[in-house]
Amino acid sequence: MYEELYAPLPDRNLYWERLGMEPPTGEPTRELLDRMILAHQCRIPFENLDACDFRRPISLGIPDIFQKVIVDKRGGYCFELNSLFDALLQETGFKTMPCLGRSLKDRGYVYPILHRGIMVNLDGERYLAEVGYGGPTPACAIPLVDGAELDSRGQRFRVELHENGWWHLIYLGSIAKLNAAAERGEEVPPTPAYAILDVPAALTDFVPLSYFCSTHPDSVFTQWRMVNLRTDDGNISITDDAFTRVTPEGKETKRVESDDEFRALLSEHFGIELPA
């Protein structure tokens, strides 16, 4: 049962093809890590359709995730996408550490640990490599340096080290919005995104967490559909019955009126072809 969590990738070259990249040669570098993260976010969508629409069990075995995401050209959520990406990073020569995380959305309580993250140790520096979070996150490796700010694809983020080994990622806003606010003498309130615990986790730790996320009626993943993909100039998403496109010019949202329209949007914008 649990052995499949540690299985090798069935076809590494097919994974690189899915990312639109040539298999790299030489030693792993920060530049390569950044390119891998960006390609993953732009070509493999975050989505929870198995949990929400189809009520299907979600396997965390590497062969099963590979079949779904790489062969069948679907997407997944953090327990799937970060697991698969972690396997690719390791086979590419990166030193990684799986870790637990939680959302920092303000719901009036501390959100439970329901996120799977990846830490990378490279040339004596440590980074987060995130390809499975459905909200705002940098399209590059995130340096684990307390107080560090980084700009990524028109967005600004800050990293903060909190007590008990929790690293917080804070979304500061779009750079255009921040500059406009600064000209008016105003401030844009920061938005805490997610936190990662700086302690190694076992791959088996994620099995019960994923099971809760994909089956429990209180889980957000069973309550409404979520599909998200980074684009060249922003992102596109479907949340419940709303299709949204974000570009530097702003945000456009329209209602998805039917299942046929939903399937057409998945095919056209996310590359997902659902079976009848």
Results as ranks from 00 to 15, higher is better:
W167I: 01
G154A: 08
H162Q: 15
S152M: 08
D218E: 15
R116F: 11
L150P: 01
M97Q: 11
V131Y: 07
V131P: 08
L128M: 11
D123W: 01
S174N: 11
G173A: 01
L172Q: 14
R230K: 15
A129K: 10
L229M: 12
M97D: 02
V110F: 06
D151P: 05
H168L: 02
V188I: 14
S214C: 14
I113P: 03
K177Q: 13
Y111W: 12
L114M: 11
G134R: 02
G154F: 07
T137R: 12
W166H: 10
L229Q: 06
V227L: 06
G165T: 04
P138R: 07
I238N: 01
L100K: 05
P190K: 14
D123H: 06
D123G: 03
V207K: 14
Y111S: 05
L172H: 09
P200E: 13
Y127L: 03
I113L: 08
I142F: 00
S214H: 14
P136S: 09
Y194S: 05
Y111A: 11
L203I: 00
H115C: 03
S237T: 07
G101K: 06
V110Y: 09
T191F: 14
A201G: 04
D123K: 14
E160H: 04
T96R: 06
N164T: 08
P143T: 00
Q155F: 03
L203T: 02
G135Q: 13
W224C: 10
I170Q: 13
A148K: 15
P136A: 05
V145N: 05
G101E: 01
V207T: 13
T204K: 13
I238S: 01
V199P: 00
M97V: 09
I142M: 02
L203A: 02
N235G: 05
A148N: 04
R184Q: 15
G101V: 02
D151I: 09
L128R: 00
L178C: 04
I142K: 00
N179K: 14
G124L: 07
A181Q: 10
Y194P: 01
T92V: 02
A201S: 15
D123S: 12
V188Q: 04
P190G: 07
S174R: 15
D106P: 02
Y211Q: 12
A201T: 12
Y127W: 13
C99S: 13
F212A: 07
A195V: 06
C140Q: 15
G135T: 03
P192K: 09
L178Q: 08
L197G: 00
S237V: 01
Y133L: 05
W224H: 14
L203S: 03
L114V: 10
H162R: 15
G134I: 02
W166I: 03
C99H: 02
T231S: 14
D146K: 03
L150D: 04
L144K: 05
D233V: 08
P143I: 00
H216V: 10
G147R: 09
V220I: 12
L114K: 10
S219R: 14
H216L: 10
L178G: 05
R116D: 10
E187F: 02
D233Q: 15
G165N: 09
A141E: 01
V188A: 08
E186D: 12
L150K: 07
V188G: 06
L144Q: 07
R116A: 13
Y127S: 03
P138W: 02
D233M: 03
T222N: 11
V120L: 04
S214A: 15
T215N: 14
